[in-house]
Amino acid sequence: MLEVVDLTVAYGPVMALHGVSLTVADSSITTVLGANGAGKTTLVRTISGLVRPRSGSVRLDGRDITRLAPEEIARLGVAHVPQGQAVLAELTVDENLRLGGLWRRDPNGQRRALAEAYELFPPLASRRHLAAFSLSGGERQMLTIGRALVARSQVLLLDEPSLGLARLVLVQIMARIKTLVLERGLTVLLIEQNAKSALSVADQAMVLHLGKVVAQGAAHQLLTEEGLRHAYLGF
């Protein structure tokens, strides 16, 4: 279980998050919605340790991880897929994928996880020995998501996975993630601009506006709240 308690983050004098609290239950998908600048990315970057909060805490299965280094948080089983197709461009596709799970020191498990990733993303399999900078935007996104899946982490933080991906590929990825949620108890925090599609896969949802929580609840409820949709979600 991933818990965020009363988190406040500021970049210098600019407040990015004001007292945000959130609980993501095991084996569920929670989506965080909101316009640009709402603080969605800041929220995931704080969870994964890249940004230090001014106050508040992040807990993983009851353990306080707020002040841990990003690499230690990753090693506790939190995989963060950053925004913007953050592949290691100079390394090959295969090297990128392998890096996802190197910290586990479990070569056999990694081989299986790697094979699964190639099965899920056939375009990557045919380019496995090419440098990642030669990939298209969509393929890069596949690579960052595949890399996180190879880690077989318990918690997956996805920051706008839909960017640059074809609709069909996105549907396929979300179906795969849903399977992992049901079968392996994966816990997912999904950041999205596209509220409609995110709400359709998520169990819980939260809407951020200028760093504050303006709505929180079951995803299907938010989907039917007319006023909220018009005010913050734009559909």
Binding site: L50, A74, V87, L102
Partner: peptide
């Protein structure tokens, strides 16, 4: 090599 090319992404992948 990963650390040299992109420290931030490397840290997210659990590399010290």
């Amino acid at each position: 090599r990963a650390s040299a090319f992109n420290p931030e992404v490397s840290r997210l992948l659990g590399i010290r």
